[in-house]
């Protein structure tokens, strides 16, 4: 049994709506109902091709949202995820590009690019974690400012220009759905295992629930927080690999508009903005639900503004549900 699952015993006489609200499976149920309800009326929604598209765009978001989940569990938030993705994107492209890459044409180009992207993601995460723990700064401010700084840095380094001519092997990581899935599955399984079965996972939940109590209990709180941000940075770097491969180019503004989706999907899945609650499987459900909404509204040919309003409304509803769940205990 995980720390998240041990939160509160359920009263036996709770009504159905209350039980549903508390249920871990609410979002999955909503996703299934939404899919079944809209499939007959939405052209191409249930088609094989569309489901393939859905999966290929869902996976990078899932990877980024996994990182956000880890940070939310520990009671933080990572607003710099999108700038990490952008910075990693141009770093990888700068190494591997056949046009102007540092290792253009070399067989080491792709592995070196991947290593460089992971290193950049991990280092930015480390910086976030150290700033939060050493200087006791609020995660919101730290990651907001690093988002601004690293977004600006990415644009400055590239002079706003995209970097193309990436090796086919690199593009395949994000462009071939089966390969993306093969990359994401062990990553998700590993993250799930680490959160639910490892000591580190228990420390994360304990820190998120009550850092003081965790510290008294012997949890190395500062180290746990730093490690959560490093993991989030590494996962943002993996998301950058997938997004860059999809677009076949490194972009300094890659994922610039994705923050709402990353945080939103995580919160919709059930991770708490107050810390101490969240699971990889829940986040997957949140990502699936958000992408189903996005995809179906597009297929229904609704205007951009309507789609934005609906998505914003759904995320707001999820945040309200989170607050309600806490009140219900």
């Amino acid at each position: 049994m995980t720390a998240a699952a041990t939160t509160h015993p359920q009263p036996e006489a709770a009504s159905l709506p209350v039980r549903l609200l508390r249920s871990e499976h609410l979002v999955l149920l909503l996703s299934a109902l939404y899919f079944l309800a809209l499939a007959p009326f939405t052209p191409g929604f249930a088609s094989v091709g569309n489901l393939g598209n859905l999966l290929s765009t869902l996976l990078p978001l899932f990877v980024a949202a996994m990182g956000q989940t880890v940070v939310l569990i520990v009671g933080g938030i990572d607003l710099s995820a999108t700038s990490i993705i952008a910075l990693c994107s141009i770093t990888g492209a700068a190494v591997a590009s056949g046009d102007q890459g540092w290792l253009a044409g070399s067989p080491l180009a792709v592995p070196a690019a991947l290593a460089a992207m992971l290193a950049v993601g991990g280092l930015v995460g480390l910086f976030n974690g150290l700033a939060i723990t050493r200087f006791r700064m609020p995660p919101f401010i730290v990651t907001l400012t690093t988002m601004m700084f690293f977004s600006g840095l990415a644009i400055w380094l590239t002079r706003s220009r995209n970097i193309g001519q990436l090796p086919a092997a690199f593009n395949a990581l994000g462009g071939k759905t089966w390969l993306t899935l093969l990359l994401c599955l062990p990553l998700a399984a590993g993250a799930h295992f680490m959160l639910s079965r490892s000591v580190w996972g228990r420390w994360l939940y304990a820190t998120g629930h009550n850092p003081r109590a965790a510290l008294v209990s012997g949890v190395p709180v500062a180290g746990v927080v730093v490690s959560a941000y490093v993991v989030a940075g590494l996962l943002a770097a993996v998301a950058a690999v997938l997004y860059t491969g999809q677009a076949e180019s490194g972009s300094p503004v890659l994922a610039q508009r994705l923050l709402l989706d990353i945080v939103g999907a995580t919160v919709i899945g059930g991770a708490s903005l107050f810390g101490g609650r969240g699971r990889i499987l829940w986040t997957l459900c949140g990502v699936v639900f958000l992408k189903l909404i996005d995809n179906s509204l597009n297929l229904l040919d609704l205007s951009h503004f309507t789609i934005m309003m609906v998505k914003g409304g759904v995320i707001l509803l999820a945040a309200m549900l989170d607050a309600l769940r806490r009140r219900l205990g």
Partner: peptide, 22 residues
């Protein structure tokens, strides 16, 4: 039929692929 990518290249890729599947 229309789709607006809100300045996101990857979202635009997804939307145009939706056109293709339709």
């Amino acid at each position: 039929i229309q789709a607006i990518a809100d300045g996101d290249a990857n979202r635009q890729i997804e939307q145009v692929k939706n056109f293709i599947t339709r």
